[in-house]
C-alpha cells in the first residue's frame, strides 16, 4: 500500500484491512511491557525460585522477562528476591539508583515485603522503605508461577491497564520518559 493511499483512505476502511492505529505512547508502552528485563538481585531463598522461574518448565521467557541482566544499567525492573539485611540496604538503593528510568521494583517474598518471619535487628522490615515497590508478591518463597503473575501484573501497570485500591486507573509511563 502506497503511502499516499494511506492518507487518502478512511481509517475504518484501513483498520478492516489490517492496519492498526494507536498513539505512540501506547505503542511504546506495549513494547516496554513485553521486554521487561530484570536486574538480578537475588538475595536469599527466593532467588532460587526466581532462577526456577526461568527454567524449562516455568519459562519466564514467554513474557519477555528472561534476560536477567547483571548490570543495573541494562535493566528495567528490579526483582528484590529475599530478605534484605541492613548491611545490604544501601547497596540495593545504589543499584536502584543506577537503573535507567523508567524502572519498576517487584518485591518478592514475605521477607522483602514485610520482614517476614525475621522481625529482628538485622533485617529491613520493608523494602518499600528503601525503594518504591510496584508489586508485592506474597509467599515464602513464592512459587515461580506467582512471580510470573507478578510480572504480568507489572506489564498491565506499564501499559496503563492497572487500577489502584480505589478503582482509579493508573496512568502509564510517558513515552518520552528517559
Amino acid at each position: 500500500m502506497a503511502l499516499k493511499e494511506l492518507f487518502e483512505r478512511d481509517w475504518q476502511e484501513l483498520e478492516s484491512g489490517g492496519v492498526l492505529f494507536s498513539s505512540l505512547e501506547k505503542l511504546v508502552a506495549w513494547g516496554r511491557s513485553n521486554s521487561l528485563w530484570p536486574a538480578t538481585f537475588g538475595l536469599a531463598c527466593c532467588a532460587i525460585e526466581m532462577m526456577g522461574s526461568t527454567d524449562g518448565r516455568n519459562d519466564l521467557a514467554r513474557f519477555g522477562s528472561e534476560v536477567f541482566r547483571a548490570s543495573p544499567r541494562q535493566a528495567d525492573v528490579m526483582i528484590v528476591a529475599g530478605r534484605l539485611s541492613k548491611k545490604m540496604a544501601p547497596v540495593m538503593r545504589r543499584v536502584y539508583d543506577q537503573m535507567p528510568d523508567p524502572k519498576w521494583v517487584i518485591s518478592m517474598g514475605a521477607c522483602a515485603s514485610s520482614g517476614g518471619m525475621f522481625n529482628n535487628y538485622a533485617v529491613v522490615q520493608n523494602v518499600d522503605s528503601v525503594v518504591p515497590v510496584d508489586i508485592f508478591v506474597p509467599g515464602c518463597p513464592p512459587r515461580p508461577e506467582a512471580l510470573i503473575y507478578a510480572v504480568m501484573q507489572l506489564q498491565k501497570k506499564v501499559r496503563g491497564e492497572a487500577f489502584d485500591n480505589y478503582g482509579t486507573q493508573l496512568p502509564m509511563v510517558d513515552a518520552w520518559t528517559r
Binding site: S114, G115, N119, N120, Y121, Q125, N126, D128, P132
Partner: peptide, 10 residues
C-alpha cells in the same frame, strides 16, 4: 534486644 523493629511505610 532481639529488636522487633517498626516497619516504615512510604
Amino acid at each position: 534486644p532481639v529488636g522487633e523493629t517498626p516497619t516504615l511505610f512510604r
